[in-house]
Design a protein around this nucleic acid. Structure first.
Lengths: 357, 357
DNA sequence: GTGAAAGCGCTAACAC
DNA sequence: GTGTTAGCGCTTTCAC
């Protein structure tokens, strides 16, 4: 079956010319070739059903039109959108994107980095989950261009980041403006930079509005995310609501969740306990993943503009690749409030709802 | 900065041996090399901070550890799960996955196919959106192994498919068993194989249960999906519910939606019209994407086992690649009913709910 | 304009 | 066991 693929050598033979000429015609680089010869080459290529072998070319030119992207997991709804942004830009500029999911495992991340580099890729976009950046640095010294979109990273490279602090502040502000003062903060452990920043922004806003946040309303789970559970955050939301309700403290009038998935879990568990959103309680998320629009009630949240992030990262990387500038710049994206139906103005008498479970 | 990468030639020089020996040591293929020399080579490689160039090897061996996958869009929640299945299997077998999103554009699909092939990839998994399979066939004849997971495809290749008909039947059956007889069917135009099959399974089940499905309860939208709108199906669900409510016909007691996203839209629009799920009406979806578990009420649906589909496809492809068998086999996956909270038993008096809007 | 030939980094006969 | 060398498919210098 698999007949051996034709090469430029075969074409040269058939067109009675040299491989040099064939290469000039087919790579279409503007090198002057007489029209008649050109046509003969093209004709021969067509006849032989020629497909170029990119490996040969790349080995020779040492140029690559591939860029890599390493993310924790494509099953986290945030990343497909980001990837879309990366791909749209890459496609426009003639690049291909090689996606790698580290699944939050440092060994996977390292393996993918190594493979990408061995494939002679010249640039990557990465959300690194590795504490130790020695390997990345090593590759960087070997000429790999890196754009990171993960604040934690200490590496000196281009970065695209997000102002989580402002996002947390903004969320609190929205709820406070609606009249809420008893606002619970639900989150997985504050172990990541992003979570900590959101928390601090949130707390600062409460403080700025003269609200003393009670420790009873800061509900954190104990265990860190497991790498393979796609709905961990969702389950965590349910868990945290149960923890809140079980505490015996008065129910807050609003809940701010560290991300949308947690909010979905919270809403489901609240509803199960006959506490309805937004009638009895307002709930906010963070991220603005596509699902947040599709649940009922639709979720008020803070947009992280994943698509834009991806597009900017790709833009940055490709510019860097093509201009080979060594400047490390950082772009910080600002949050946007997305008001939907899961939050509402606090009515005067709402403040007196007390549940003791 | 970017110091030139060391090659096996440099190592040979430093270790005072030949490139052949270096290759034998580094490619670790069990070829006998004296321990002492081996160590010298390894030492030299370490010293030079050597990274192999995969291109050189691949060009020489004409073997590839990459497989490609072409899907319509990673932003459709069904595919990340499928991709996860593909990647898990690929990783286990030492393969890398190259993802391509066609965005439902035939020209993109063709471009990606061509690029993958030029990169000397030997096998792909594809959900083709192209009517004309000539190009695929051409590549197949050139030796590309193909696994399709898309029923429409007429190409003679390995396939992994899903029994949509049984799924449609199963959905209807579930609702009928709950006592429903007035069941609306909501869908985008019945232009794709999968939709048609689901529809026919649904209708057959109605018939088998002696229920004559009224045309008034078959609600289809007129326009085909736009390639770039990630929430098209969701919006379509809202649109279809409005069409149903606006028809002036008695409201059905249950709605079956062609997929989960449509169901999310339907639920949101029903709720907006103060028709509550599942109290006033039962709603079912199809696909079992992750979100269906996270909405409130959680969605009763038919599982398409995306992960399994991906894993099987990868397994099939890699086996094919390694055994180079020419047999085209097809695996048909069966649906699973996932009962959650959006459907409930029809109460005697529910049948009398009539709304005229 | 065109062709001969070197060589990108690697592997695998083949010779010793 | 080890080294020499041809060559995978391509581009590009250099000579004509």
């Amino acid at each position: 079956m698999a007949e051996k693929n034709a090469t430029i050598y075969d074409i040269a033979k058939l067109a009675k010319t040299s491989t040099a000429t064939v290469s000039r015609v087919l790579s279409n680089n503007g090198y002057p070739v007489k029209e008649e010869l050109k046509q003969r080459v093209l004709e021969a290529a067509r006849k032989l059903n020629y497909t170029p072998n990119l490996l040969g070319r790349q080995l020779k030119t040492n140029e690559s039109l591939d860029i890599g992207i390493i993310i924790p997991s494509i099953t986290n709804q945030f990343y497909p959108l980001l990837l879309l942004g990366v791909e749209d830009v890459a496609r426009k500029k003639g690049y291909n994107v090689l996606l790698c999911n580290s699944l939050r495992k440092p060994e996977n991340e390292k393996k993918y980095l190594s493979t990408l580099f061995q494939k002679q890729i010249k640039g990557i976009i990465i959300s690194s989950i590795t504490k130790n950046q020695d390997y990345l640095k090593q590759l960087q010294q070997k000429g790999l261009k890196i754009v990171a979109f993960d604040q934690g990273i200490s590496l000196d490279c281009c970065k695209i980041s997000f102002d989580f602090y402002a996002g947390g502040y903004m969320a609190a502000e929205h709820l406070i403006k609606l009249g809420h003062r008893k606002i619970a903060f639900l989150s997985a452990p504050l172990t990541r930079y992003s979570r900590i920043q959101i928390y601090e922004g949130f707390m600062q806003c409460m403080k700025d509005n003269g609200i003393e946040q009670s420790q009873d309303y800061i509900i954190l789970s104990e265990d860190e995310e497991e790498s393979h559970d796609q709905v961990y955050e969702f389950k965590n939301g349910k868990y945290l609501v149960n923890k809140l309700l079980g505490s015996g403290k008065p129910i807050p009038t609003a809940i701010f969740c560290i991300n949308d998935m947690t909010a979905f879990g919270a809403i489901q568990e609240l509803t199960k306990n006959k506490i309805y959103v937004p009638k009895d309680i307002s709930v906010m998320g963070f991220d603005n993943i596509p699902t947040s629009e599709m649940i009922t009630p639709s979720l008020t949240t803070v947009d992280q503009s994943a698509y834009e992030m991806g597009a900017l990262a790709a833009e940055m990387l490709i510019n860097n690749l093509e201009s080979s500038s060594e400047r490390s710049i950082e772009i910080v994206l600002k949050p946007k409030l997305v008001v939907r139906n899961s939050t509402k103005k606090l009515m005067a008498n709402d403040t007196s709802i007390y549940f003791f479970l």
